[in-house]
């Protein structure tokens, strides 16, 4: 039984699996981090069933990271929040996942959630080398 809090990725088509594996190179082999992919052919009901079948035990330290806010992945995470006391953040990216993994042994407080969200947001900027004088 892992002491690390559960992190669940919900993405369209399953690109999250590659993200999880790749981030392992930065923060070590991820533990208790997995994805439930939404296939294009799934109905809403099929995906809800798939998620419920895959998540196992959920606590209020469980974090769900979805790809698109307003997408079926996020809608299902929200629908199921009536049943599961998890926390959800949308727009998952590399550094957001890394931050989440780094806090995996802490309580998922509002502060920690804010740090995870911010890490994702802070990683997004236009990169340009300033003009050399």
């Amino acid at each position: 039984m892992s002491t690390k809090n559960k992190i669940i990725l919900l993405t369209h088509g399953g690109w999250g699996a590659a993200l999880i594996n790749s981030m392992g190179l930065l923060v070590g082999k991820p533990e208790n981090v997995f994805e439930v992919a939404l296939e294009p052919s799934f109905t809403l009901e099929q995906y809800i069933e798939k998620v419920q079948g895959a998540v196992g035990e959920v606590s209020n330290n469980t974090l769900v990271l979805t790809d698109i806010p307003g997408g079926t992945t996020s809608n299902v995470a929200l629908r199921l929040s009536r049943r599961y006391p998890w926390h959800i953040i949308s727009g998952v990216n590399a550094l957001m996942l890394v931050e989440a993994i780094m806090h995996q042994e802490e309580t998922l407080s509002d502060e920690v959630l804010a740090k995870i969200l911010e890490a994702g947001q802070q990683s997004q900027k236009e990169l340009r080398v300033p003009k050399q004088v």
């Binding site: 369209h12 809403l44 997408g71 079926t72 809608n75």
Partner: peptide, 10 residues
């Protein structure tokens, strides 16, 4: 659309 409001729609 059985997924109602979602990615493609939005």
């Amino acid at each position: 659309d059985s997924r109602l409001i979602h990615g493609q729609v939005v």
